[in-house]
């Protein structure tokens, strides 16, 4: 009991004192997972849209593969990226192993299936007649697709939230390709593992609190966007569509 109480006190002390070590780790976590999420959205969302609205041979297989990606073990993804980026690997010349970039790549691989899979489900939940109805009102393909995606927007944001969840709490891939180098690739999850092993439970616990605070804050923000009025703007206000 003392241990936990002490850990909590220490956690708040570390947070309140803006400890440099902690501050760096938090910043690196946000950079890596933010970058990974951005990359996952850039790649996963168009893929999800393609699978959600497209009809082409092999589509079902791609959908199944996408959903299989939900269950990708982070250590396996980490191993894969490790091999690709290792000195003898196909991308070894880039010397990216044990860098934040490597972590971004690995985590993006983990998050992309969530972004693609959840948005694809959301897009498919909208009746396809919505797009046809938009076309029947004179909309071109782009505008009709936009009208369809707009109706799926809550689900698409849920896809982003799911993708974020897949990376921010992930430790396996981050350790394997990042290496947990202090000041470079040490992030909250890898630091928690390390501090726990060292017996620094207070620090580990403090980092755990911070991690959860970040997750909560980001999700509150994303949910506000999802449920809030900004998304209620209309399809007519997209001149490019």
């Amino acid at each position: 009991m003392d241990l936990i109480a002490g850990a909590i006190v220490e956690a708040f002390r570390l947070i309140a004192s803006l400890d440099r070590y902690v501050f760096e780790i938090v910043l690196r976590s946000i950079q890596v997972s933010g970058g990974a999420l951005l990359l996952a959205v850039v790649v996963g969302l168009p893929f999800g849209i393609l699978l959600g609205v497209g009809r082409f041979p092999g589509r079902r297989l791609l959908v199944a593969i996408t959903y299989t990606g939900f269950a990708l073990p982070p250590v396996v993804v980490g191993l894969f990226v490790y091999l690709v980026l290792s000195r003898e690997g196909p991308a070894g010349a880039l010397a990216l192993l044990f860098s934040p970039t490597a972590m971004v790549l690995a985590q993006a691989l983990l998050a992309a299936p969530y972004v693609a899979g959840v948005s694809l489900a959301a897009i498919q939940a909208v009746p396809p007649d919505v797009r046809l109805q938009a076309r029947a009102l004179g909309a071109g393909r782009g505008r009709a697709l936009w009208a369809h995606l707009r109706e799926a927007r809550l689900g698409i944001l849920a896809a982003v939230i799911a993708g974020f969840g897949a990376v921010i709490s992930e430790v396996g891939a981050a350790t394997m390709v990042g290496g947990n180098i202090i000041g470079e690739t040490r992030v909250l999850t890898t630091a928690i593992v390390l501090e726990t092993r060292r017996g620094n439970f207070e620090t580990a616990m403090a980092l755990g609190f911070i991690l959860m605070a970040i997750v909560l804050t980001v999700n509150v923000l994303l949910t506000r966007v999802q449920q809030g009025p900004a998304w209620e703007r209309t399809a007519t206000e997209r001149p490019w569509a």
Partner: peptide
């Protein structure tokens, strides 16, 4: 040509937004 499907399939937003949809498209 303009078509109206069996189910209304209104776009989320206001009635006015819906009435403007085709005008913007055209």
């Amino acid at each position: 040509l303009a078509g109206v499907f069996q189910r209304p399939h209104l776009f989320s937003g206001t009635v006015r937004d819906n009435l403007r949809f085709g005008l913007a498209a055209a």
